[in-house]
């Protein structure tokens, strides 16, 4: 990015800033160690903060020397990413907003600008302007890199939590010898339906279960996509030699299913989990004997 031609044999502003950052890295690191971004993370030891500050200053110097002050993809910033991802991610976990972190990174600039001005005391006003502009651009890029890091850390957190939720939300329960069930609670989307299907079918193999019950009592709505997933699960279970029963279809959902024109004809359904279990037990040849007739038997 050759924006300005260097006058005579004078260094380009980028190179000058690079040299300056490298030369003054100790002072810069000392000042940054007191800045909020480094201070709050390295509460244990100030030496660590200084160390981190020095590493960042060196990386910035390398980026400037390469003439890539405004390129966040510059190799030198990889070091910054590594160094700062820890820092920024812990700030983000501690509840700092993006705006706060952005302000904190911005706060790293004034002390460096001050040092640069002091360094250029003898230079022409134009030269000072050139160099401070280059430094400002460089610090702006740094801010971009940090925010990128923070946001991708946030995304990772969301991905991880989504995964955990999927696992937590699909417990397969062994109800009886050869009978497993998944009580589904909450909205079913495509990704979750997929996980439900796979975990249920895996447990059919593990438990050698001839019957698998999908209980949807806790599912608020069933649209055609969810119904399709239920039917796929039933069909897959059948191919494996197991029978899949869908239980807990509430009247409102039954209405929707009819309304949407979904044909659940091939799916074995029961009103409640208890009814489904009773059916599976009966199919296995177990007799359920009860002294008092249960209300379910009147249906």
């Amino acid at each position: 990015m050759p924006e300005r031609e260097a006058a005579g044999n004078q260094q380009t502003p980028e190179h000058a800033v690079g040299d300056f950052l490298l030369r003054r890295r100790e002072q810069i690191a000392q000042r940054w160690a007191d800045a909020a971004l480094f201070r709050t993370v390295f509460t244990v030891s100030r030496d660590e903060a200084v160390e981190a500050g020095r590493a960042v200053a060196e990386a910035l110097a390398a980026a400037a020397a390469a003439g890539r002050v405004e390129d966040p993809e510059a190799n030198a910033f990889a070091v910054v990413r590594e160094q700062l991802s820890r820092t920024a991610a812990s700030r983000s976990r501690a509840g700092s907003t993006i705006a706060q972190i952005s302000a904190e990174v911005d706060a790293l600039r004034p002390p460096v600008t001050d040092l640069l001005r002091a360094d250029l005391a003898d230079a022409s006003a134009e030269r000072v302007l050139e160099c401070t502009t280059a430094l400002t651009v460089l610090m702006g890029t740094l801010r971009l890199v940090v925010l990128e890091t923070v946001m991708s850390a946030g995304q990772e957190l969301i991905d991880r939590q989504r995964l955990q939720l999927l696992e937590v939300a699909t417990p397969v329960i062994k109800l009886w010898e050869g009978i497993v069930a998944v009580p589904l609670i909450g909205t079913l989307d495509s990704a979750r339906s997929q996980v439900v299907m796979e975990t249920l079918l895996d447990s059919v193999v593990e438990q050698h279960a001839r019957f698998a019950i999908l209980d949807i009592t806790g599912v608020p709505t069933v649209d055609s996509l969810v119904a399709q997933h239920l039917m796929k699960t039933v069909a897959a279970a059948r191919l494996m030699g197991a029978e899949c029963i869908v239980s807990g279809i509430r009247p409102a959902i039954a209405q929707t299913i009819v309304h949407l024109g979904i044909d659940l004809g091939s799916v074995l359904t029961r009103a409640s989990l208890a009814d489904a279990l009773a059916y599976a037990l009966q199919q296995q040849g177990a007799d359920i004997v009860s002294a008092v007739p249960s209300p379910a038997s009147h249906r």
Binding site: R162, L163, E167, A191
Partner: peptide, 8 residues
């Protein structure tokens, strides 16, 4: 590859 590796 899907974002959700299967735990099993």
């Amino acid at each position: 590859k899907s974002g959700a590796p299967r735990p099993r």
